[in-house]
Amino acid sequence: MITIRGKNDDGLQGVADALSKYKKQHHNADIVVYRQNSVSVRIRIVDPDFDGINKADRHDIIWDFITNLPEDQQSEISLLLLLTPDEMEMSFANDEFDNPIPSQL
């Protein structure tokens, strides 16, 4: 299951649907998406399978799943946070994901 935090909309649902294919292959992945503002979608995937994979390669893996989204939905992705469970505590971006600074939009 993918968690959609806050109010759902077509854009968020499209992202969640695209990432559900990743989730089917990575059962231990914890995936959360939310809309930061009207033009910004944030994604966090915490997956033990990322262990030993550098950040650039992690992004390549996930973009393979979201590249088929319409361009307007892709362009709204402002944060793609890809962590192992062990990296969560040390990540400033993870703290911002959990406690976002309110958007001015």
Rank of each mutant, 00 (worst) to 15 (best):
I101G: 04
N28Q: 14
L80K: 13
L81K: 12
S20G: 05
I31A: 01
T84N: 07
N54T: 00
I66K: 00
L80T: 15
L19Y: 04
L83T: 01
A16L: 01
I62F: 00
L82H: 11
E87S: 12
N94R: 12
D17P: 06
P85V: 00
H26F: 09
Y22I: 09
D49V: 05
Q73L: 10
I31Y: 00
E76S: 11
L79E: 15
G14P: 07
L81N: 14
N37C: 14
E96G: 00
Q74F: 01
V46W: 00
Q13F: 06
N94S: 12
F97P: 06
L19V: 02
V46G: 03
V41E: 10
I31K: 02
N54A: 06
K24I: 02
D57L: 07
F97N: 11
M88I: 11
D57E: 14
M90V: 03
A56K: 08
Q73H: 03
M90Q: 13
A16Y: 00
H26P: 06
R58K: 14
G52C: 06
P48S: 01
D95Q: 11
L19W: 04
D47W: 05
D95S: 05
P100K: 04
D86I: 13
H27F: 07
D95C: 00
Q104C: 03
Q73C: 01
V33R: 00
